[in-house]
Write a protein that binds this DNA or RNA. Structure first.
Lengths: 360, 360
DNA sequence: ACCGCTTGCGAGATCGTTCTCGCAAACTTG
DNA sequence: CAAGTTTGCGAGAACGATCTCGCAAGCGGT
């Protein structure tokens, strides 16, 4: 019968209960050093009896590692990206014996800086960061990380010299353009959401985050390859808020010669196309075609299904964890820049203009 | 000039650098006790110079609290529920000075049990749990939680006597039924996804998780109130996997007298309706009406927009954090069972049968 | 000039664990 | 049977912070 104290039972309580010393109790439970089988059994039973639960804090302080990794993400809802990435990271970490401390930055660099500071104070063994689009990144430099490894996901920050896992959006978007041209489209719209823009604009903003830049470059490359002249590449940029997105869509549809197909750089923008086109009675996949980046359940199940450049988000998260754990457990790994292949999933949102008589 | 050691600088290094004792350095930085202004300044400067970052682990061990809460969720993608809830919890926690350790259970009770064990070992100050539908819940009883507070979210576990934050899905669903009947619908389908079912079935499974049970009860109550006879309430149950869902939808549409409207208990099921109806050329909001629980961007922006019972997910998360932090910081709070109101958002997916001539 | 009070600071204990070291008992070996 | 080796276990230090004491110096009041 254990005497109940007012604190959670510690290894000292286990030792008393089993009639051995702290050291022996610890040895028996952790299984290092030499302990007789009888003692191990006695200590185990004692621990069970008093409901002992090891204090991972103390263990971590002694060991110098916490078995915890810090995750700094940018929560967005429409893309089903945040949750897929988060889930895959949490699950992959758990499989390798790590827990995840999560922070959300909402694209705010200052919040990101403080979040990383807090995570480091909590002694995470390493960091996985979806870097925010705004602001600088001194806080991500090795010298400010207390020697703890960092892996970037989804967005490259080239001058940082740190392992990065992204998807090959350049090739994916280029492929999508090629596919559209093959189906007879010859005037292509491209709607890009970007941070740090006021409203919407036709001028390309000076700095795009790497993922969006890749999509833009892929679009341009695909169009050039297919011989689409610049005047038939219609670019619009907007903030990532519904009002700006919808205004950008409306402006594009209001052109004297609107494009037959609209590419969007993310799903928020794609939904704006759905909404604005719907309100004008334009049927997707007939009067207006649509391609977006990132697959999602609704894109697959809608009628018509939306043609997408699918990114292997789960793999993205898993690889990030794999890289990070490798650097944690054997430091000095070479820096890797992993780019995962994307996949064009053709559905019904892109009209085949080769057979149908051109509408509008 | 600080002498660089091979370990992260500690308060001892700061003290040396400033020429004071550990205790004084700690006082100067933490701002308790008495310290002269000059010393505070000197210590601060020393800390800056050597890049001191406090070790939150050591502080937590001494203080007995970590400033960390454990979050145990069930990741799902379609509902935009996981990410909205997670984000709101992470953000609300941060505002109150807490970080979040996140675990995902995938509805597996054993994984949930182990996740909670790990979180407790890591000395979280409290737990927010979306309880899994399967298995028992001894691991959630107060005696097994080491005295740390727990708040349940989204699903009630009545015999646990613990604060719970849910949404009033009963009233929401009842309201939705009432609305549909007012629009002329008189034969109502209800598609329910539930764990622990093999395939799909017409028989109501013995145990439904509280949120789904509330929706079912609300549906039944609304139909009864509106005078819909039992034979015009068509129930189908299925597993939460696409194959079962789609089979259930198909079976319902294959009835001799299919319902004019289908209610679904979640968005996975609603997407299955979209898919199957689409593949049969049935237009949503015309030949088949649809109402689901949980709003999401795609439900709002699709054409037609989907009528939904919207749940205040962000508020759910915030209130859970608020309750938990209250119990952490002043123990002995009364147990609260908070039910947040839902809102019916009528869109175009429910046909108005009063004016239109009945189709099919 | 003496007493009491405030101020500033340092020594040491503490949180709960792991791990090194040393010691005694038991065991092996020629 | 003596000497060396293995085995099992306990004492104590360590991780890095906070906090309780107690001490010495400075201060004002009488």
């Amino acid at each position: 019968m254990a005497e109940r104290r007012n604190h959670a039972p510690t290894i000292v309580d286990v030792a008393e209960q089993a009639g051995v010393s702290r050291a022996t109790a610890s040895r028996a439970l952790s299984g290092y050093g030499r302990t007789s089988a009888a003692t191990v059994e006695r200590v185990r039973r004692a621990a069970d009896e008093i409901g002992y639960r090891p204090n991972e804090l103390a263990r971590a302080m002694r060991a110098g590692s916490t078995g915890t990794i810090g995750l700094v993400v940018i929560a967005d809802f429409t893309n089903a990206f945040f949750d897929r990435a988060t889930k895959s990271i949490v699950d992959a970490a758990r499989k390798r014996g790590y827990q995840v401390l999560i922070s959300n930055t909402d694209e705010d660099a200052e919040v990101e800086r403080r979040a990383i500071e807090t995570l480091l104070e909590k002694q995470v063994d390493g960091l996985i960061v979806f870097p925010s689009a705004t602001g600088h990144s001194e806080h991500l430099e090795a010298g400010n990380l207390g020697g703890r490894p960092l892996v970037l996901v989804d967005r490259r920050l080239d001058d940082l010299g740190v392992s990065t896992v992204t998807t090959d959006d350049y090739t994916g978007t280029r492929e999508a353009v090629r596919n559209a041209v093959a189906l007879g489209h010859s005037r292509l719209g491209f709607l890009v959401t970007a941070a740090n823009i006021a409203g919407h604009t036709v001028a390309r903003p000076p700095a795009l985050i790497s993922s969006v830049r890749d999509r833009a470059d892929g679009f341009a490359a695909g169009a050039a390859e297919a011989g689409i002249p610049p005047e038939d590449q219609v670019w619009h940029f907007s903030e990532d808020v519904p009002e700006s997105s919808e205004a950008a869509v409306a402006a594009m549809l209001d052109l004297d010669a609107p494009p037959s197909i609209i590419f969007t750089s993310n799903n928020d923008m794609a939904l704006s196309v759905l909404k604005v086109a719907g309100s004008r009675g334009l049927a997707i996949g007939r009067e207006v075609s649509l391609v977006t980046v990132d697959d999602s359940p609704w894109a697959a199940y809608m009628v018509p299904g939306i043609t997408v450049v699918a990114r292997p988000v789960e793999q993205l998260g898993e690889l990030a964890v794999e890289r990070l754990v490798a650097e944690i457990e054997s430091p000095g790994q070479p820096v890797e820049d992993i780019q995962l292949p994307t996949e064009l999933i053709p559905r019904a949102s892109v009209a085949d203009l080769r057979t149908a008589s051109p509408e509008r």
